[in-house]
Design a protein around this nucleic acid. Structure first.
Length: 454
RNA sequence: GAGGAUGUAGCUCAGCUGGUUAGAGCGUCUGAUUGUGGUUCAGAAGGUCGUGGGUUCGAGCCCCAUCUUCCUCCCCA
């Protein structure tokens, strides 16, 4: 058998992990600075927790786990019946009662719904775990990938939107990735739907206009017509998504369009507040008001976010928004939430393309002790003593010619090598050579540590 | 889920209308060089041509199926 891994999954080598961890650590540090606490949930959820939460297409993309024990003779009859249901496109608990998590927001909502009695609100949690989607893999699209989410549950305050915007700005500033943070507000889209035949058209409208950037105005109009909107309604939407200009002029136009619509004005005012704070913030950021931003997930009810890297062809590298009643799906009413998500795998690809990973994160072993054939104890003791001071070092495993030992150090990008032979042992000295410069110096064993602690 | 491209040595790729024993560069290993690497030189190892069928006297090349990776649609991080 030829070893392989499932389509759309990857192994991560040490070099890749160092860079990935740099991203994870940056995000984690910022989350913690804003008071978020970490949560982990199981890779699998009960299937009914996930089904029906991600729109019409979403259910198809959920990885289902086959139940165990279907082969038991006493279960054959029900298993056959259940499988018939699967063949006709339904899901059946008799065949599958668990599935891999599709995102981190729904498991979070499930957690809140289960534990709301014990939690202190507003509850701020962050979560960094893999999610799985049965999508067709492409560049920047995997079947297993990590999300890093920060959400606040149990508060309607716009303060959270302001802080989440600032988290996005801080993280991408620290990662040196230039981004645009696109914002919009579902309340404005709701108002738009009210003017176009009622809120029952909301989903049709959001799905279509969300594609504006990708397929262009004409195709969006076509799709709207196909989704059953009248020509008059499509005209209203065209007017809406054609709004152009800087943030201020867009806001101005929106205010005129929805002057008589209470919910619309509410959404606009929320956006204005977020914009004002980001403008006055010390953290540099580019926040863009984008009326055609809609996001496919239909549980959003207020502010919506999407982050795009500038200068790189890549889908969104982050997204999120406010949902007034997420836990309502799990029978707990009245808990509002708002959150954002970072797509680590895409951020990685973007950073690789922009070559913005810092040099020093590659650092591993600092010093390699050459094996000159002297009694091992001397080297083991020395290495232990260096490690006590936090200096990563290795001892070459066999006394072979230096050529090999040098090449090992080079391959692993170890900056220093230490040579202690019989002669040095007698004198209590060590030769330290810096490989990048070729400079070699002799120090006493006692001074060895200092050479690696600048 | 629909459509399209791709796969040859560890890596990047050649390989003619189907014709003897499948090539190069880089890397690896050995030696020049048994305590001083990166350069140079000499030599060697390394391939069920993604996998499984088929057509043919003969297949890396043609046909079918399947898997991988990539692209478009859909959707998204």
């Amino acid at each position: 058998m030829k070893p392989s891994i499932p389509q759309g999954t990857r192994d991560f080598s040490a070099a890749v992990l160092k860079k990935r961890n740099f991203i994870f650590n940056t995000i984690r540090r910022v989350f913690e600075l804003y008071g978020f606490e970490q949560l982990e949930t199981p890779a699998m959820e009960n299937i009914e927790t996930l089904l029906g939460k991600y729109g019409e297409e979403g259910d198809k993309l959920i990885f289902k786990i086959l139940n165990n024990g279907l082969n038991l003779p006493e279960k054959h009859d029900t298993a056959r019946k259940d499988f018939e249901a699967v063949l006709s496109g339904k899901t059946s608990k008799g065949i599958s009662e668990r599935a891999l998590r599709y995102d981190l927001t729904i498991p979070f909502a499930r957690y809140i719904a289960m534990n709301h009695g014990q939690l202190t609100f507003p509850f701020k949690r962050f979560q960094m775990q893999p999610v799985w989607r049965a999508d067709r893999p492409q560049r920047g699209r995997y079947r297993e990938f990590y999300q890093c989410d920060a959400d606040i549950a149990g508060s309607n305050s716009i303060l959270h939107e302001i802080e989440l915007t600032s988290i996005y700005a801080t993280v991408f500033h620290q990662l040196r990735v230039p981004v645009e943070i696109h914002i919009n507000n579902r309340k404005i889209l709701q108002a738009l739907a009210q003017q176009c035949g009622g809120e029952s058209n909301m989903i049709n409208i959001t799905i279509a206009i969300d594609k504006l950037d990708k397929i262009g105005l004409d195709k969006v109009k076509l799709e709207l017509k196909e989704r059953g909107l009248t020509i008059e309604q499509v005209e209203i939407i065209e007017k809406y998504i054609s709004i152009k200009g800087d943030n201020q002029s867009i806001i101005g136009t929106l205010k005129k369009l929805f002057a008589n619509n209470e919910i619309g004005m509410e959404g606009i005012n929320e956006m204005v507040e977020i914009l004002e704070h980001s403008k006055s913030s010390k953290i540099p950021s580019t926040v863009v008001v984008n009326p055609s931003l809609a996001r496919g997930l239909n549980y959003y009810t207020g502010t919506i976010f999407e982050v795009k890297a500038t200068g790189v062809e890549m889908g969104s590298i982050g997204g999120g928004g406010r949902y007034d009643d997420l836990t309502g799906l799990f029978g707990v009413k009245g808990i509002a939430g708002v959150g954002i998500s970072f797509g680590v795998d895409r951020i990685y690809d973007v950073m690789e393309e922009l070559a913005v990973f810092p040099e020093n994160i590659q650092a591993g072993t600092v010093a390699l002790f050459f094996n000159t054939g002297i009694e091992k104890t001397h080297l083991v003791d020395l290495a232990t003593s260096l490690r006590e001071d936090g200096i990563a070092c290795e001892i070459f495993h066999e006394a072979v010619k230096f050529d090999k030992q040098f090449k090992y150090a080079e391959k692993k990008s170890i900056p220093f090598i230490v040579i202690i032979g019989e002669e040095e042992l007698k004198n209590g000295t060590a030769n330290i050579k810096e490989l990048s410069t070729g400079v070699q110096k002799t120090v006493t064993i006692q001074e060895l540590k200092k050479a690696f602690t600048p």
